[in-house]
């Protein structure tokens, strides 16, 4: 009964905070609202006995929101980030698409005859996840690792101010043709 109440409280907090992200009048407040939504979902994962993933979601998303706040200060300055703003386009079509999506997803959630539960969770779910990652599902981790490494490289290539594209500018294509682009 207690877990039922806690789940509904967390659900209301997650949805209300999610709505607040696009309703509040400053990006700083939007960041806090998104962090609150993520924390609520992370705690809901704990209710489903996903201790490791729940804690990781909370920690990762709080950190991510902190980085987002830094970006807002960096790009817009501290005051614009706290000042009222409304920068939207196609508000009405976006609203229609999102409501339509919710109706379809909700109908699927309610109308589909979901099967009954198969099997029981392991006694120690964190250990079972660790064992899966290190044994039967190691290929998944072996795939995720190079993807993350490629992300680091790609993000640096894009973000560096003195990258190859900035250095050569409009001459990039011409100089590549003559084999001198990589100097």
């Amino acid at each position: 009964m207690l877990s039922e109440i806690v789940f509904w409280v967390l659900a209301v907090v997650a949805i209300a905070a999610g709505v607040a992200v696009f309703r509040v009048d400053s990006m700083a407040r939007a960041t806090y609202a998104l962090a609150a939504s993520f924390v609520a979902v992370g705690l809901a994962l704990l209710l489903l006995d996903l201790q490791f993933l729940g804690v990781m979601t909370v920690l990762m998303m709080v950190m991510e929101m902190a980085i987002m706040a830094i970006y807002m200060i960096m790009f817009m300055g501290m005051n614009p980030a706290l000042m009222p703003m409304s920068m939207v386009h196609g508000k009405r079509p976006a609203l229609l698409v999102s409501i339509g999506t919710f109706v379809v997803l909700a109908a699927g959630a309610v109308l589909v005859p979901w099967p009954t539960r198969r099997g029981a969770p392991a006694a120690d779910l964190v250990t079972s996840l660790g064992e899966a990652v290190m044994h039967s599902k190691m290929l998944v981790m072996l795939t995720v690792s190079p993807v993350l490494f490629a992300t680091i490289v790609a993000a640096l290539v894009l973000a560096l101010p003195r990258g190859r594209y900035d250095r050569l500018g409009p001459e990039l294509r011409h100089r590549s043709r003559h084999g001198r682009a990589d100097r």
């Binding site: 999610g18 696009f22 809901a44 920068m87 939207v88 959630a109």
Partner: peptide, 26 residues
């Protein structure tokens, strides 16, 4: 069903934001 309904609500709210917002961070 209730978990999926909450998840659908979060997904739809996010979809609205991804379509309608103009700032990249938003």
């Amino acid at each position: 069903e209730t978990v999926l309904l909450v998840a659908a609500a979060l997904f739809s709210i996010g979809l609205y934001g991804a379509i309608s917002q103009q700032v990249v961070v938003m």
